[in-house]
C-alpha cells in the first residue's frame, strides 16, 4: 500500500463528503421512545427466548449489506461508473463503526438488539440509501400487513420467512 493510486486521493474527497451526519432522525427517535422492546414483551407474554424473533433476520440483513464475500470500497468507483445501487453497499467495518458511534450517541439506553436495528436504519437513512419518508411509509404498509385480520396474508407467510419466524422462533 505504499504506492497510492492518485485516483484514490480524489475519492478521499468524495468519502469526506459522505462522512456520516449523525444528527437524530425524528422517526427513529419516536420508535426509540414508543417502541416496545423484546425485554418488555417477552416478560409480559412469558416467552423464554432471550432474543426477539427478528434478530437473526437483522443480522442477516447486515451480512447481506456487507456484500457477497467482502465489500470492496465501492465509493472508489467514480459515481458515473457505479453499475447499480448495489455498488453502494455499506462496507462491513464502516457500518460496524457507525453502529458503535450511533449507539453511543443516540441509542445507549435502548437494549440490544433493538439498538443495533436503530443504528442500522440510521446509517442507511444518513447514507441516502433510503429516505426517512420512504422508511416511514414502508413501516406503515408493513404494519398494516402484519396487523391484518387472520388468513389474509397466508400466502405471503410461505414466501416470507420474516413472518414465518414470528411464529417459529
Amino acid at each position: 500500500m505504499t504506492d497510492v493510486n492518485p485516483d484514490y486521493l480524489e475519492l478521499d474527497k468524495e468519502m469526506n463528503e459522505r462522512a456520516l451526519d449523525s444528527s437524530p432522525i425524528e422517526l427513529l427517535e419516536r420508535i426509540k421512545i414508543e417502541g416496545r422492546v423484546w425485554e418488555e414483551l417477552s416478560e409480559e407474554y412469558g416467552v423464554n427466548n432471550p432474543d426477539p424473533p427478528w434478530r437473526v433476520s437483522l443480522e442477516s440483513t447486515c451480512d447481506q449489506l456487507a456484500g457477497g464475500y467482502w465489500a470492496p470500497f465501492n465509493v472508489c468507483l467514480p459515481k458515473e461508473e457505479r453499475e447499480s445501487p448495489s455498488d453502494d453497499k455499506v462496507d462491513a467495518i464502516e457500518r460496524r463503526w457507525e453502529e458503535d458511534d450511533l449507539v453511543a450517541k443516540h441509542y445507549a439506553d435502548v437494549p440490544f438488539p433493538e439498538r443495533q436495528l436503530l443504528a442500522l436504519a440510521h446509517t442507511l437513512v444518513r447514507r441516502g440509501i433510503m429516505t426517512e419518508q420512504e422508511l416511514a411509509a414502508k413501516m406503515k404498509s408493513v404494519s398494516d400487513r402484519l396487523n391484518m385480520v387472520d388468513g389474509a396474508y397466508e400466502d405471503e407467510e410461505l414466501s416470507n420467512p420474516g413472518l414465518a419466524n414470528k411464529q417459529g422462533a
Binding site: 500500500m1 505504499t2 497510492v4 484514490y8 486521493l9 478521499d12 468519502m15 470500497f73 467495518i93
Partner: peptide
C-alpha cells in the same frame, strides 16, 4: 507503521 488509506 505504514500509511494506509481508508482501510487497514
Amino acid at each position: 507503521d505504514l500509511p494506509d488509506i481508508f482501510y487497514t
